Amino acid sequence: MTNPPSYPTGPTPYPTGAPPYPSAPAPDATGHPYHRLDRATGRHRWWRPWAGTLLLAVAYFAALLVLLAFSFGLGTALGAPELPDGGADLGPVGNTAMDLVSIAIALPLVLLATLWPARRPVGTVTSVTGRLRIGWLGRCLLAGLPPILLLTVTAFLLPGDSGESDTWVGWRSFLTALAVLVVLVPLQAGAEEYVFRGWLLQAAGAFVRSPWFAVIPQAVLFAAAHGWGTRWGFLGLLVNGLVAGLLTIRTGGLEAAIALHVLNNLLAFGASAAVVDGLSSDETAADAPWPLALTAIVTDLLYAAIVLWFARRHKPQRLSAPSTPPAPCAHPARTA
């Protein structure tokens, strides 16, 4: 007598290789450009960039209050005179150091905002590789030397304002100031890049695909953050922000923007430190006259051309690593 066929009593298994959840999104197979890295983790929500920007602004304001209290306490302990704004007068070098630190404190806050509420690795705000590419940073610093030399020569040949001092400050004072600048300017310049070309660029890029639409908002904010001086000064800063933002996307990281910013600021602060009361001036790049602003624009464009030439030769990574699909689940064989 033939036994009747047996049928499985449990749920029918999926065919081999079929996903258990057909509606799950397909993995990204191409990687993301720098300005779209907020989309690379799969944790993007519309509110995260907004919440991170608000948190960054509030935390920065609180950190400034703490730094101001520290500066006032230090000035009181040293018996320093009081500035018109109520702060302690620590001297030209001391005041400049405090100004640089007041910007540099934004750097760790950007990294914290990247961890939360953005909920992605802190390295994603640095480059598509998740780290600072030291070799590429060195090449960008090398690329910046000819343009900065051009800017230096032009600034030296331009006539200065009638009220500006041109008295040499002396080697001891100059070298002391230069040592402070070499330590703090890279932190200050890097912090600005992490805020504008890093966080704000990626926050805009979370909503738009076009590099231009991601680059323009941060460039306008960058120029406005320096105050309104002259129209040419504002234009020079706007072009600088656009060039730095586009180079960041084109090369896949902040290295090119950081190199240009560091070299520019070392030149500007170094020139001020060389003359008596130079560091006491409250002028910024926003106050540049048209010849200097126009030279700065040419400098930025020349730097961009050299960096892009280097990029064609050395090919820095421009996209994040593509997502890998999960390994298919193995279904145990069923026995009758």
Results as ranks from 00 to 15, higher is better:
Ala118Ser: 05
Pro217Gly: 08
Ile306Leu: 07
Ile103Cys: 09
Ala225Asn: 08
Phe234Pro: 03
Phe207Met: 13
Leu200Val: 09
Val153His: 02
Pro81Thr: 12
Trp290Lys: 13
Ala273Met: 12
Gly227Tyr: 14
Arg133Trp: 07
Ala259Arg: 04
Ala336Leu: 07
Val153Met: 04
Ile306Ser: 00
Ala274His: 06
Leu67Asn: 12
Thr152Ala: 15
Pro326Gly: 14
Asn265Glu: 11
Leu235Glu: 03
Ala59Thr: 10
Gln218Thr: 11
Thr12Phe: 14
Glu82Ala: 15
Ala225Glu: 04
Phe72His: 14
Asn265Asp: 12
Asn95Val: 02
Asn3Gly: 01
Ala223His: 12
Val128Ser: 03
Val243Phe: 00
Trp116Pro: 00
Val185Met: 09
Gly241Ile: 04
Ala268Asp: 06
Pro322Tyr: 05
Leu56Asp: 05
Leu246Trp: 09
Gly252Met: 02
Leu279Cys: 10
Leu37Met: 13
Gly31Val: 01
Asp287Trp: 05
Ala333Tyr: 13
Arg250Asn: 01
Gly94Met: 11
Thr299Arg: 04
Arg39Phe: 02
Gly31Phe: 03
Gly245Pro: 00
Ala321Ser: 09
Val110Tyr: 03
Gly73Phe: 06
Asp166Ser: 15
Ala118Pro: 00
Ala285Gln: 11
Ala51Thr: 02
Pro5Ala: 15
Ala57Gln: 06
Pro108Arg: 14
Tyr14Asp: 15
Leu175Tyr: 02
Pro13His: 14
Ala40Cys: 01
Asn265Thr: 10
Pro15His: 10
Pro20Ile: 09
Ala256Leu: 09
Pro27Leu: 06
Leu200His: 08
Pro217Trp: 08
Ala80Pro: 06
Arg43Gly: 00
Ile148Tyr: 08
Glu82Gly: 11
Gly270Val: 13
Ala327Arg: 14
Tyr194Cys: 09
Val243Cys: 00
Pro13Lys: 12
